[in-house]
Measured scan of single mutants.
Amino acid sequence: VPQRAWTVEQLRSEQLPKKDIIKFLQEHGSDSFLAEHKLLGNIKNVAKTANKDHLVTAYNHLFETKRFK
């Protein structure tokens, strides 16, 4: 089981690129989880459509539901 890579403050910070969060989610989330949160596909394309709040919610949801690969 992966550990949380970032704190809530870090997740919301401008310093953390959306692409980093997407990469983490794609590496650790199950396909059904990723599909549900519309996070499947090319990281660049996902970054265009997903806002930061959406990614933070998905990140927290992944750990709450433990839907890891």
Rank of each mutant, 00 (worst) to 15 (best):
R4D: 12
E36Q: 12
K69Y: 06
L16K: 03
R4H: 07
A5P: 15
A58E: 01
L39G: 00
S13K: 03
L39Y: 01
A35Y: 13
S32E: 11
R67P: 03
F63G: 01
N60V: 15
D53S: 08
H37Q: 08
A50D: 03
K48C: 12
V56K: 02
G29V: 01
E64F: 10
S13M: 03
K19D: 15
F24Q: 02
V56Y: 05
N45V: 14
S30T: 11
N60P: 00
K44E: 15
T65Y: 15
N60G: 09
T65D: 08
Q15I: 06
L55Y: 02
K44T: 14
S13L: 02
K23Q: 11
R12Q: 14
F33K: 00
G41A: 05
E36S: 07
D53E: 14
A50R: 07
Q3R: 09
L39C: 02
L25Q: 00
L40T: 09
W6I: 06
L55E: 00
D20M: 12
P17C: 10
K19G: 13
A35H: 13
A35M: 12
V8M: 10
K38I: 04
I21D: 00
Y59C: 02
K66H: 10
F68P: 02
D20C: 13
K52A: 04
K69R: 14
S13A: 04
K23F: 07
L11A: 02
L55A: 03
E27R: 10
R4M: 08
L16T: 11
S30W: 03
A50C: 12
K19R: 11
F68Y: 06
K44G: 14
S13T: 03
E27L: 09
D31L: 13
S13Y: 03
D53C: 08
I21Y: 01
K19H: 15
H37I: 03
H28T: 12
Q3P: 09
D31H: 13
Q3T: 11
N42T: 13
P2M: 05
N45S: 12
K38V: 06
L62F: 04
Q3F: 07
W6C: 14
D31A: 13
T49M: 13
T7N: 07
L62Q: 00
F33E: 01
A58M: 06
N45C: 15
K44H: 15
E27M: 11
K66G: 12
N60R: 06
F33N: 00
L62S: 00
K69D: 04
F63A: 01
F63P: 00
K19E: 15
K44M: 15
K18F: 05
L62D: 00
A47G: 07
R4K: 08
Y59H: 02
N42M: 12
Q3D: 13
A47W: 06
Q3C: 15
T7L: 04
L34G: 02
H28Y: 13
E14H: 11
Q15M: 09
A58D: 01
E64M: 10
K48P: 06
G41W: 04
N45R: 14
E64C: 10
F33W: 10
E9A: 05
N51I: 08
R12D: 06
D53P: 06
S32Y: 09
S30Q: 10
Q10V: 05
T49D: 12
Q10I: 04
S30Y: 02
Q15C: 12
L55W: 03
I22T: 02
R12E: 13
E9C: 07
F33P: 00
D20T: 14
K19F: 09
E36K: 07
F68K: 02
P17K: 12
K66I: 04
K52F: 06
K19Q: 15
F33H: 01
K66C: 12
E36Y: 12
E9N: 04
K44R: 14
A5T: 11
T7V: 03
T57K: 11
V56S: 05
E64D: 13
V1G: 08
L25G: 00
V1D: 10
K66L: 09
P17Q: 12
F24C: 05
I43M: 10
E36C: 11
Q15T: 12
L39P: 00
G41C: 05
A5G: 11
F68A: 02
T7P: 08
F24K: 02
F63V: 02
H37F: 15
E36D: 10
K18W: 03
S13G: 05
E9Q: 05
V8F: 06
P17R: 11
E27I: 07
G41M: 04
Q26H: 07
N60H: 07
H28L: 05
K52G: 03
D31Y: 15
N51Y: 08
E27D: 11
E36W: 11
V56N: 03
A5C: 15
I21N: 00
N51A: 09
N42G: 10
L25D: 00
F63Q: 02
T65L: 08
A47I: 13
P17L: 11
A58I: 15
K48G: 09
T57S: 11
L34K: 05
V56L: 04
I22D: 00
G41Y: 04
N45E: 14
K38F: 12
T49L: 14
Y59R: 01
L39M: 07
L11N: 01
R4T: 05
L16H: 05
E27Y: 05
E14N: 15
L25W: 00
A50Q: 08
Y59D: 00
K52E: 04
L39R: 01
T57G: 08
N42S: 11
L40S: 09
V56T: 07
W6D: 06
F33I: 02
Q10M: 11
K44Q: 14
D53I: 05
K48D: 14
R12F: 15
D31F: 14
V1Q: 12
D31Q: 12
N51D: 14
L34T: 01
K52M: 06
A5N: 15
D53K: 06
N45M: 13
G29W: 01
E14L: 08
V46I: 11
L40N: 08
K18D: 08
A35W: 15
N42C: 15
Q26G: 02
V8K: 05
